[in-house]
Amino acid sequence: MSAAKNIPSRRAEWLLTLPSLGWLAVFFVAPALIVFLLAFKTADATGGVSAGWTLDNLRALADPQYRPILWRTFWISGTTTLICLVIALPVSFAMARAAPRWRNFLLLLIIIPFWTNFLIRVFAWKTLLQSDGLVSQLLDATRLFDESPTLLYNSGAVLLIMVYTQLPFAILPLYAAAERFDFTLMDAARDLGASGFRAFRSVFIPGISRGLGAAALIVFVATIGMYVVPDIVGGTDSEMIGNKIAQRAQGDRNLPLASALAAALLFCVLLLLILCSSAFRRSEKLDNALKGELQA
């Protein structure tokens, strides 16, 4: 009887899912496939795509000129991720321990910036950091420098604003994990002689490791393809892979090469996602196995 009931309900489920699947297919899968296909095409001098197929674009990726850009992209994304986690860890800890009324208020504070357009927030930072901006004026007031240092147009500015834009994406999953964390474990660790910091490191961090993984993944994936931030506040030494893709597509009129770069990036991100989700599934499977064993 349950089987007879299941079939129509499963069909209904499919029908209900169809619009979103269709949306995903049209606006995500299809463009991604086009990008992958274009990567195997040849470019003509007029900015068009010629009929033939080639592996040259993929071979071009091995060109040593991409190495410093790739290295910089990974370095900036990795450092951004690390800084975001280092800040988000104590923040999420404090939020989870705060009184419920405060907790919602803090959560609101973290979400409010999303009400403002991303680009506007980046430009706001630019206004703050530019040579006659507020931060420079404050630095001038301290008289520590003969002339206030240039705060914009370097990798430091890119890093700062990347951290600023990505921090909520690190805090939210960590907070979700911290909220589920059993804080008596911290008491237990203190009771067994651990200092507050040792308890945080040896008990809290392992206890929210999945949230930590999710936060790291979200921030890293979001920053590795970043184009806008290095374009606006970056200088001559802050070019990332996203900027190179834009240059190939617009300035160089070489869509296939841009596609090859984009496809390589997409491939890296997908690989990372698959690795993480399989690690996640493995740990979940282990949990289930443990539960099963206990029941048996």
């Binding site: 001098a45 000129q65 410093p68 850009i69 001559t236 070019e239 190179k244 240059q247 300035g251 160089d252 009129r253 070489n254």
Partner: peptide
């Protein structure tokens, strides 16, 4: 410059890097 635009692209890449 037709096909020779590639020479400029190469220089530009080297300058950026």
């Amino acid at each position: 410059l037709g096909d020779d635009l590639k020479k400029y692209t190469k220089v530009w890449d080297e300058v950026k890097a």
